[in-house]
């Protein structure tokens, strides 16, 4: 299972929506699945996702491959607070493959 930590308006896709605690959803994935697939399984509209996506604490994209032991952190589009030089999450796999 992948442990998906959700923030802001994405918390509604997890069991707990309380802002003062972790909002975590668990998702089973298959070989070859990507971050985008995980978001899809949770029903998160891709346009609600910002560029702040962290896979095991490393900046990632929708196309980054995932495994069942991963921790994924997803922030909505109104919470992206890292500078530009972010890459388009829909197309790039980011700087660290």
């Amino acid at each position: 299972m992948i442990e998906v930590h959700l923030y802001g308006k994405l918390r509604r896709f997890a069991g707990s929506r309380r802002a003062t605690s972790a909002s975590i959803a668990f998702v089973a994935c298959r070989p070859g699945d990507t971050v985008g697939d995980v978001a899809g399984k949770l029903g998160i509209p891709l346009e609600d996702l910002g560029s702040n996506i962290f896979l095991n604490g490393v900046y990632a994209s929708l196309e980054s491959p995932v495994q069942n032991t991963d921790r994924l952190g997803l922030f909505p589009d109104d919470m992206q607070l890292l500078y530009k030089w972010y890459f388009d999450p829909k197309r790039s796999d980011g700087p660290e493959k």
């Binding site: 923030y7 802001g8 962290f54 604490g57 900046y59 952190g73 919470m79 992206q80 607070l81 890292l82």
Partner: peptide, 21 residues
Amino acid sequence: KGALNSYGTAVLVNIINEAGA
């Protein structure tokens, strides 16, 4: 009502924590 107006600079606490930094 963007990130800074809604959550203040403290919106970064969760982001930088998620980054492990």
